[in-house]
């Protein structure tokens, strides 16, 4: 029997409407419920990803990673969270307080807001915007503003350099990112995430086979968008001592940290939706398929980080503008012909 969460949620939804409350209250309850579920899911994912990255990096480096906090260290993230929570929040005297305060909030909020649009399984999406993918790219651009805010308000040369580098990088890599996705949109004639998944029912319809170049460009540009190696110049420890978040400590640092992992999952989930058939798959429940595919892409991106050295800032820019961008245009033209 297929365990479908959507039927369970439908039952709950019907029960709430049968209580005889005013319509706006029912809507409010349903929206809050959905938001709470997505929030819960987001935190669970962060919990899992932090632990998983540490275990994976450990095994790549011939060591074990966390082992003592729970079975194979699965409680490590909770331990880290508790530690960061009770750390003293050091705010240097010379920072611009309001901007300093709001930067991590905006970073976290913008990454999190994009989760509203992801199709988690069959009939399991918080909302089906008909401009879904455009909304996701637009809202994650706020991350750039928050990084610039962090770099500028810290009143620190290293932070400023880090913030500027990261802003330049993210803004540049958005162009090939969007172009690579346009190929898929041309094929499905729709910006809605649900419709895109719907167009990939059969395995041979998956866009990774119909648009392989687009997938590769997307993967590379997405790694750059999330500031991960080999594009992690803004956080290059060895050069700028943590770049834009040099002056952040305690809970604020934790928010940047969580936002990075949310972003990581987000780009993987979008890759799955656009190229790997979303939640389609035999035997297992649809939400399980979605999660498995998303975590596979996350694994690949983590693998990149622990294998490759880091590109220099100007090489990064050259790579984006002189190599990825022409390729993305080429891909778009070919897609236009193929899917006309």
């Amino acid at each position: 029997m297929r365990l479908e969460l959507s039927s369970l949620l439908k039952v709950i939804g019907d029960w709430i409407s049968s209580l005889g409350l005013p319509v706006w209250l029912v809507d409010l309850i349903e929206m809050c419920g959905a938001a709470a579920m997505v929030m819960g899911m987001a935190f669970l994912i962060i919990l899992f990803l932090v632990w998983w990255e540490r275990k994976l990096s450990g095994h790549f480096q011939q060591r074990l990673g966390p082992m003592r906090t729970g079975w194979h260290g699965w409680l490590q993230t909770i331990a880290d969270g508790i530690k960061l929570f009770q750390k003293e929040d050091i705010i240097p005297k010379t920072v611009d307080r309001k901007v300093f305060y709001w930067a991590p909030v905006i970073c976290f909020a913008s990454s999190f807001a994009a989760f509203a649009c992801l199709p988690w399984g069959k009939n399991l999406w918080p909302t089906d915007l008909n401009i879904g993918i455009l909304y996701i790219f637009a809202i994650t651009t706020f991350v750039v503003i928050s990084l610039l805010m962090a770099g500028w308000s810290s009143n620190n040369k290293y932070a400023l350099l880090g913030g500027m580098r990261s802003a330049a990088q993210i803004v540049s890599y958005e162009v090939p990112l969007t172009l690579s996705v346009l190929g898929v949109i041309v094929a499905t004639q729709s910006l809605s995430m649900v419709a895109i998944v719907g167009a990939q029912e059969k395995v041979y319809n998956w866009f990774i086979f119909r648009q392989p170049l687009g997938f590769l460009i997307y993967l590379i540009a997405a790694t750059a968008e999330t500031n991960r190696a080999p594009f992690d110049i803004p956080e290059a420890e060895q050069e700028l001592v943590a770049g834009f978040n040099i002056e952040y400590s305690g809970m604020k640092f934790a928010m940047f940290f969580m936002a990075e992992f949310l972003n990581l999952f987000l780009v993987s989930a979008v890759a799955v939706t656009l190229f790997l058939g979303g939640w389609h798959g035999p035997f297992l429940p649809s939400w399980l398929w979605f999660l498995l595919k998303a975590f596979f892409i996350v694994f690949v991106i983590i693998w990149f980080k622990w294998t490759y050295p880091r590109l220099r800032v100007d090489q990064l820019m050259e790579f984006c503008w002189k190599f990825l961008l022409p390729l993305a245009f080429l891909n778009l033209i070919v897609a236009g012909f193929l899917f006309r």
Partner: peptide, 16 residues
Amino acid sequence: FSLDLGAITPFLYCIR
């Protein structure tokens, strides 16, 4: 050297 360039893994192999 590889740590400074961003490739973190060779460091642990060398230490081994």
